[in-house]
Design a protein around this nucleic acid. Sequence first.
DNA 1: AAACCGTGGTC
DNA 2: TGACCAAGGTT
Length: 355
Amino acid sequence: MRDPDLEAGPVADALLAWYDAHARDLPWRVSPAERALGVRPDPYRVWLSEVMLQQTTVAAVRAYFHRFTTLWPDVTALAAAEDGTVMGEWAGLGYYARARNLLKCARRVVSDLDGRFPDSPEALRLLPGIGPYTAAAIAAIAFDRPETVLDGNVERVMARLHDIHTPLPGAKPELTARAATHTPTTRPGDYAQAVMDLGATICTPKSPACGICPLRAPCRARAAGTAAELPKKTPKKPKPTRRGIVYLARRDDGAVLLERRPDKGLLGGMLGWPGSEWGETAQERPPFAAQWDTLAGEVRHTFTHFHLILTVKTAPLPDRMNPETGEIITAAGFRPSDLPTVMRKAYDLWRDGVA
DNA sequence: AAACCGTGGTC
DNA sequence: TGACCAAGGTT
């Protein structure tokens, strides 16, 4: 840490100057120009965007952020929403524990904190769904506190800036220390967003645009020619393939049989079609006795840690029945967009077969 | 600490 | 076309 080019000042200064000219225009963001005029971001919108952005691309988040802030403009409104409504609005975005924790967090902020988000990372960290990264990000971006954020972008930028070849996740402590060295005490919120913007637009995972990078002068990996191969990562385990069956029962009036999945585990809290367990081989488990037709084709879907091949079976839903599993949703109450993607794929396979 | 937890875009 | 990747958190 003796190299003057790598001390806090030069790197932060270069990044902030670049950010003033090239900051992305994002719906939850206060632009550097507005910030200079004293405009402060709404902590609710910062928190909501940060949770949505966990392991998720900006492109995917935009529409969801707009829907959520339109339906629920502040944390009090969100805290008062029904669980099923929020889960339905989150459908398709993935990592559904985020949505469950989002609601828990909103309700705790309203009931315990008078509707105001804390400004310290320590206090933020105590709330559901807020880990080390998100706590630092909210403190820095919403409250302009000099906290160091470490996300995938910052890891990549720091690994390259300092030419660190230690593989992730082991390199995290080292990268955190490096990142902290550069965090400025002035404009820390803009700085945090600047590093992440750099990682998202210039210092990208593949073929980084080193030629136009504001950090090209001090960057050690660029000098060494190793930028494109950093950061190193420990290889991932191969994904096994599992199989299962889902049962789509529909009445002539359009009502369907769905079930609310338990809060714990995969797709927890979401609606889904009744079906078998997912394992080596699919076991029949129809929700009621009937002549089940097997649809041509199958649903293929990949989750975080396994591939899934789903067989889709259909039958008419009897007019009067009290199913032991699931609940009958009327045509008016059924929105395919409430379904997680794998379940919507099964619905689409059936609908395409009918059309 | 390692496993679990979604999805869509990209090359 | 399949593996990698994205503003990670929880258990």
